[in-house]
Design a protein around this nucleic acid. Structure first.
Lengths: 219, 219
DNA sequence: TAGGATCCAGCTTTGGATCCTT
DNA sequence: AAGGATCCAAAGCTGGATCCTA
């Protein structure tokens, strides 16, 4: 499972992926990565450590395991599995939000099958929790699609500034200020193009928390 | 309009009621009641002062102006009309929530016509704001009814403990802990009767704030 | 610049607790 | 006990700000 240079080979199938994921349960994060620099210095690193540990192959704007159709999401949780944050899904194409369709959206593709790897935060210690492989049920897909369409519809009607993070039952749109000085072109009122902060789709923690407990839940 | 003992006679019709209500605009609360005892000692008193000032006649479980079909609600707001609190409507009959019907509910009756008297809080001063006479539009009634039925349905299915204040777009159910030690009998899971804190229906401030600005709004 | 994931100040909401009058 | 309304600590949510790697 490990080649000469310390890399993990890609999993051949879902079973192998899940065996690896389950084998990581209980492992301290410090065993998978360098956690020196303490606390503040781990943004995004846990996700990358998990990708390496599981043998993810995806690059750029693709899934983490393209052959298996699986997206990997590392999610920080409390000991009771309550997520500490909402989960980023993907950026939104602000400039032509009016022609987006659910069926060929990145949101739908990314969420069609997700391997959730909880990282349990307990005081200073962080451990891998129980992995969950999830594909949305039909009912869940309907609600996600409705959220998606509500948000894009609102952009089309009132422009991006009329959209708030209150919209959407499970999916919401929020600033994705990777570079807080960045500006993107977006649809404003009256079809004008305006500059605004880049935004992304996020899953509310009420929903991701429910998935971790029961993958077919509808909170 | 004032009889010998300082009482205000009841208004004969809606016009008279509204004239009085509008005449109170800008009046400091200290002119209508004793505000000594400062701040903490005014719970419910502003509402009673307003009843007296307008000549309300209702007693017990009835409307404030039974002949006019009007319920009076005194509501604390910020200078920009944003309500400081949700608004209590009435208690819920916890013991037989399963047989309640919207059409003969107290919620519907109390909300069929409301005279809103905002009390504008600005620093230490409190003044009467602009009165609003409101009756729900057909659309608003539909949403209120849907909220009511969602909440009562949830009680019927999962018992009172399964109902949270998150339910309902405009109407919500919350503890009505007038006496925090009080307990009421309510439907629990499996149709058992359990003891619980008394609860009441409240209107969210998102909704009451919208009514004050535009009585036909659907926030 | 894109992907991946936290961090956090400040505001809002929940779930009661309190207070007064009839 | 019911009607009327306010107070508040703690939890949750919004709207960004930050940080790292490729």
């Amino acid at each position: 499972m490990v080649c000469d240079d310390g890399c993990v080979h890609p999993p051949r199938d879902l079973d192998e992926l899940m065996s690896r994921a389950r084998a990581l349960e209980g492992v301290a994060l410090s065993e998978l990565m360098d956690v020196s620099g303490l606390a503040v210095r781990t943004k995004g690193k846990a996700g990358e450590a998990m990708e390496r540990a599981l043998g993810a192959t995806g690059v750029g704007a693709s899934l983490d395991f393209p052959e298996l159709g699986v997206e990997l999401k590392t999610i920080p949780v409390e000991p009771d599995l309550k997520p500490r944050e909402s989960t980023f899904v993907c950026a939104v194409a602000l400039a032509h939000a009016d022609r987006e369709e659910w069926d060929d959206s990145w949101v739908k593709r990314k969420l069609s099958r997700v391997l959730w790897m909880p990282i349990v935060h307990e005081a200073a210690l962080r451990r891998v929790g129980r992995a969950v492989l999830w594909a949305p049920t039909e009912e869940q897909t309907c609600i996600l699609q409705a959220d998606f369409e509500e948000i894009l519809g609102a952009i089309a009607i009132g422009g991006i500034e009329g959209v708030t993070a209150h919209m959407g039952r499970w999916l919401q749109l929020r600033p994705k200020a990777a570079d807080s000085h960045a500006r993107a072109l977006a649809l404003g009122p009256d079809d004008a193009l305006i500059e605004t902060v880049p935004r992304g789709f996020y899953l509310r923690s009420r929903f991701t928390g429910a998935i971790l407990r029961d993958p077919s839940a509808t909170p």
